[in-house]
Amino acid sequence: MNSRNHYLQAKVIIPFFMQIALIIYVVSALQLSSPLVDGMLSESSFPVIIFLVATPAALKLLFDGLKDVKKEIAEGKEVVVKKKSIKPVLTVVIMAVFIALFELLGFSILAPLYIFFFMMVYDDKPQFIVKKIIFALLIAVVVYVMYAIAFDIRFPEIWR
């Protein structure tokens, strides 16, 4: 019986991290100044208010989540591990690589590759490769025309 998995569900994790974030937020605000300076509001008063409003909400969600988990454990329910698709992760990876290399390699090289791999991930299985390459080039050209020519926005390019 692995009870750790029970506690690693989103309904527990999200409020937990939100609470952590709120604490970091309010501490870093209070480091700037006290919320009241000579009876006047300062730059940290609003963050403190947000902290005070959101903390009960985050704690309530956290405790609700924990209560659910306890009930699940008591009932001996196993966490239903749904077969999760890897696709959202792949999408994130493609975007992250695109962003990381964007300034280095520039639009013309990256954009068609980005679209190509994006379509590969989005499709059910790797198929119609040539068609995808053509579409990738076409979309890149259309987007380039839209941004760079119609709206005069210069993207990084390897030769710049």
Binding site: I129, V130, K132, I133
Partner: peptide, 19 residues
């Protein structure tokens, strides 16, 4: 396989043009 070759070719053309 065919797709991969096309990508390589494409990259070559792009690199040549940047040079």
């Amino acid at each position: 396989m065919k797709g991969k070759r096309v990508i390589v070719l494409l990259a070559c053309v792009l690199l040549a043009s940047t040079a």
